[in-house]
């Protein structure tokens, strides 16, 4: 190979390594300070979260509604609407990242609010694409009983393999 070409090959080839090596140039102390700040901010955020929950949603009135999905083969979720005692409390449109997170086993807290002790009607509408890509809207109604502790309700989208239809289950925790 001609010497010029050889020089070019070498010059080009090592370029990425030189760029990579720059990473080590960052001051070490700076990174430690960033770690420290992130740690403190996380602990602070945890305490704020707990404080806010205690102040805004005390356990004797707190109700949380979660959304989960098992496979989601027969139903492609677009949005969920939630009504509690006839009043719309949530209307959530999902992003692709969120849907992916749900499909992988993540559980979304759709709503957190307050209700009095006793029975409450909960209606959820699941809107999206059903089997064969058709527009699909289904509702699920349930009555939940709120006691003294916080109430957790899970709305679960499951595939019903026997009739290739999505099912919407409601589970109280």
């Amino acid at each position: 190979m001609n010497s010029l070409i050889r020089v070019l090959v070498i010059a080009f080839s090592f370029l990425p390594v030189l760029v990579l090596a720059e990473t080590d140039g960052a001051p070490r102390g700076a990174n430690e300070e960033v770690q420290k700040l992130k740690k403190e901010a996380l602990e602070l955020n945890r305490d704020l979260f707990l404080l806010e929950e205690e102040l805004l949603f005390p356990s004797n009135t707190q109700i949380s509604v979660f959304v989960s999905m098992d496979v989601g083969k027969f139903f492609q979720l677009d949005s969920v609407k939630l009504k509690i005692d006839g009043k719309e409390v949530a209307d959530y449109l999902y992003t692709r990242r969120e849907l992916d997170a749900l499909a992988r086993g993540g559980v979304q807290r759709l709503y957190i609010g307050n209700v009095r002790t006793g029975e409450h009607e909960l209606v959820a509408f699941f809107i999206g694409k059903g089997p064969h890509g058709r527009d699909y809207k289904r509702g699920a109604t349930t009555t939940v009983k709120k006691g003294l502790g916080p109430k957790y309700v899970e709305l679960k989208i499951v595939d019903h393999t026997s009739d290739f239809q999505p099912e919407f289950e409601v589970r109280e925790w």
């Binding site: 996380l42 602990e43 979260f49 979304q108």
Partner: peptide, 25 residues
Amino acid sequence: DLQYGEVLFHFYQQDYFNAITRLMV
């Protein structure tokens, strides 16, 4: 545990700050 699923929901979106916060809570 529902709250574990909630942590995963943020984790799978690479939203580590909120996932860590929720896990600590």
